[in-house]
């Protein structure tokens, strides 16, 4: 459904800082699939999200349902690391923003907002401002805002990275439950291997800069998944396999 074909991207920050972020990346995401992208820190993972429309690749093509990507669109909505909720809008107005842009009538908007509030468990906070929510609730609201407009794909850039470990585990479980209900296609970039295995149908492992595809792993666990799989031998095996792939690419130079 979404296809990256030989996509390359470099950044040129005033001549001296020429950075090759992506080098001939090709992969596909099937409809309703969650594809997680992991890679060494600073390898250009987030560039994949930017290519959803904010920036143009140097070469190669990105297509969604066969159509070339050009410019940002609500069909490929982004959930950012630090929620990016509008601080001046309440929870329900944040969720309703995309619907309003889509030109939905107020009754349809209200109905959709109610649905989203109930699947994200934010019903009693509908009139709160983002500043009044906890980190986990903010991220749920940002996810709800993206879900409301029913995009073709949701692009998530380290969406749970700013949360503490406990909240993070819980919200991952919550995210899978919601995903089961609404059957969305998701591209999720993370540096957290556990997260990638727990959430992903497939995992794309990238090399250090310029990022190339090291391997695409199909995660064997059936959905719905129980949190117990986190401690299963199979989970641990996949984790050490990915970690082994990554650590070859993580050198001290790359960390600086």
């Amino acid at each position: 459904m979404i296809a990256f074909t030989k996509v390359s991207k470099s950044f040129d920050n005033g001549g001296k800082n020429f950075v090759r972020a992506l080098n001939e990346i090709s992969f596909e995401i099937e409809r309703k699939e969650i594809l997680c992208v992991v890679g060494p820190s600073g390898c250009g993972k987030s560039t994949i999200i930017l290519l959803a429309g904010f920036i143009v690749p140097d070469s190669g093509s990105i297509t969604v349902s066969g159509k070339e990507v050009a410019g940002p669109s609500y069909l490929r909505t982004v959930v950012f690391q630090d929620d990016a909720l509008f601080p001046w809008k309440t929870v329900k107005d944040n969720i309703g923003f995309g619907l309003r842009c889509k030109g939905l009538g107020s009754n349809e908007q209200a109905k959709k907002i109610r649905d989203i509030l109930s699947i994200t468990n934010l019903g009693e906070f509908s009139d709160c401002y983002p500043a009044q929510l906890s980190g986990g609730m903010k991220q749920m609201c940002a996810l709800g805002r993206a879900l409301a407009i029913e995009p073709e794909i949701i692009l998530m850039d380290e969406p749970f990275a700013s949360l503490d470990q406990q909240t993070r585990d819980l919200i991952q479980e919550e995210f899978l439950k919601i995903k089961d209900q609404i059957a969305q296609t998701v591209l999720l970039v993370t540096h957290n291997i556990d997260e990638a295995i727990f959430l992903g149908d497939k995992i794309l492992v990238l090399t250090a800069r310029p990022a190339q595809i090291k391997e695409i792993i199909t995660v064997p666990f059936e959905k719905p998944r129980s949190p117990d799989i986190r401690s299963s031998q199979e989970f641990i095996d996949i984790k050490s396999r990915i970690w082994y792939m990554l650590r070859n690419d993580i050198s001290v130079e790359n960390l600086v």
Partner: peptide, 16 residues
């Protein structure tokens, strides 16, 4: 800039 990016990716036009 995050808010502007977020708004664009939610389908906002310049007016919105």
């Amino acid at each position: 800039g995050r808010y502007i990016k977020a708004a664009y990716s939610l389908g906002a036009t310049m007016k919105e």
